[in-house]
Simulated assay, not measured.
Amino acid sequence: MQPSWGSLASTENASDHGFRQDVRGDSMTCAGNPTFPEGSRILVMPEADLISGKYYVLKLKNGESNFKKYIEDAGLRYLRPLNSNYRTIQIDGDCKVIGRGIVTKMIGL
């Protein structure tokens, strides 16, 4: 049986605590691949270690939640949007990893 998230099925297993997150805004939209346009649904696996180059939902110490590409470079940590109109965010303190995006579904095509 395929795991279900919302009305969408997936062959990926996000664990018993996996959840669906809808992308808001255009900071993760680009002309390349991958792209996560507004309204895309992300299957999030909460029990995920941070791996540079993967996509995560993180809550920053200011309470703001972000879905961005996680990057480690020269001992520093960043959240990088795919849309070049937005700035890369340096993680300068503690943040809470909500989970890693493991599958996306574009709705309405």
Results as ranks from 00 to 15, higher is better:
M1S: 10
Q2P: 10
P3T: 10
S4H: 11
S4Y: 13
G6P: 07
S10A: 06
A14I: 04
S15C: 12
D16H: 14
D16I: 13
D22F: 03
V23K: 01
G25K: 12
G32T: 01
T35F: 09
T35L: 09
F36E: 00
F36L: 04
F36P: 02
F36Q: 01
P37N: 02
P37T: 00
E38I: 03
G39N: 02
G39D: 02
S40P: 01
S40G: 00
S40L: 00
R41C: 07
R41N: 07
M45I: 09
P46T: 07
E47L: 11
E47P: 09
E47C: 10
E47R: 13
A48T: 15
A48Q: 13
D49Q: 08
K54F: 10
Y56S: 02
L58S: 07
L58M: 11
K61E: 13
N62D: 09
G63Y: 03
E64Q: 07
F67D: 05
K68M: 15
K69T: 05
I71S: 05
E72F: 08
E72M: 10
D73A: 13
D73Y: 14
G75H: 10
R77Q: 15
Y78Q: 00
R80W: 07
L82Y: 09
S84V: 06
N85Y: 02
N85E: 05
Y86K: 05
R87G: 15
I89F: 14
Q90S: 03
Q90E: 10
Q90H: 02
I91R: 02
D94T: 11
V97F: 06
I98A: 04
R100M: 05
G101R: 06
I102L: 06
M106D: 11
I107V: 15
G108D: 09
L109T: 09
